[in-house]
Design a protein around this nucleic acid. Structure first.
Lengths: 193, 193
DNA sequence: CAGACAACTAAGCAACTGCATAGTTTTATG
DNA sequence: CATAAAACTATGCAGTTGCTTAGTTGTCTG
């Protein structure tokens, strides 16, 4: 239809970036081909060369796009407490956007072998941890950086489990357990003070 | 040399399995090719077809080999406490065998899209969690399954960080912090009882 | 509404892929 | 030490890959 053309023209670039994330999540990095991405985006595969040049550059831009979106969606610094509501919301987020989450694990692993992606990977993780540290400090935890790293690792690991091997229900229960560990830690630090 | 032939003949199969893990870890699943694996193993690439048939079957066998080795190396059920010694040992393990660890993340992500690998992925993770549950119960924790899942997720997430974005030192510090969270939890549960 | 510029497509190629076929070398065994 | 089975290699091919080249279509601006 003509409306398709009108709506699509000029939007190939963003369609390719979105398709890149979907393809990597659904088929892995070994399934990331010009033709697979282009087909999902509804454009010709040579449009990738036009907009991004190489496959490496396409992935790099998709990484920047995805990390920006991921950090925005999960604003950890706004976290009040890790309770049932938090656990439910996190499990829900993963269930509603699994591709975005899977893409992050794929790209961070790839960053191990591609120095040009390292910076984004470090920024993504340190950004998450920093946001959590802010929230934990606000709640009375001191020297909270290592704690924030550990708690983020737990949440990250549980998201990974939900995506790969575990039921959402047991993941949610485990997240709530993390929250109770934090409470107990706060109580104990008050008593010993 | 003749000794090379004598030493190598009949060992192609295991050499290929070991090479598969190394190639996946160092070049990713998209770098897993018959020729890359064969070159690293020091054999002809058609030997893969001979021993395993297809590339999928090669990966499947490598997964079985790697998971058996990984579970053996990190016997979590023998864990006494998560203290400085434990943290140092875990960081050391990851530093000494990074390929085995990276391979596990790669294969578990791949298991999301390949049903024939799901069983191994679930068995690997539930095996880790079960072993931890045994250790935690022994130390007085009750209803320890969700706790074991959460603590394993934290350790898993921290190993992932060490492999990709974080210094071993800060990872070690965070692991020790996990141990202290467990202690505080035990103390609090005793007081409220 | 001309024409310049950007977005986009069609066709194709050299390199690489998994793997089949056919043959050789080594080892185990009677 | 003959011979059969198993381990291994050489050659090659059809399909797929990233990306180039050459051209078309749509949009924006004066």
């Amino acid at each position: 239809m003509a409306t398709d053309r009108i709506n699509r023209y000029g939007r190939g670039r963003e369609a390719l970036l979105a398709a890149t994330i979907a393809v990597v999540a659904e088929r892995g990095l070994h399934g990331l081909t010009f033709r697979a991405v282009a087909e999902l985006a509804g454009v010709n595969n040579t449009l990738i060369s036009h907009h991004f040049g190489t496959k490496d550059a396409l992935l790099h831009e998709a990484v920047a796009w995805a990390t920006a979106r991921a950090i925005r969606l999960s604003d950890l610094s706004a976290t009040e407490t890790i309770d049932g509501d938090f656990a439910r919301a996190l499990v829900e987020l993963v269930a509603s956007e699994p591709q975005l989450q899977v893409f992050q694990y794929e790209f961070v692993l790839e960053a191990r072998r591609r120095p040009d992606l390292r910076e984004e990977a470090v920024a993504l993780y340190e950004g998450y941890i920093e946001a959590l540290e802010v929230a934990l400090t606000r709640h009375g935890h001191t020297h909270a950086r290592p704690l924030a790293r550990a708690v983020f690792a737990a949440l990250d690991g549980l998201v990974f489990q939900q995506l790969t091997v575990a039921d959402p229900d047991v993941v949610q229960e485990a997240i709530e357990r993390v929250g109770r560990l934090l409470e107990a830690s706060l109580i104990e630090s008050r008593q010993s003070a």
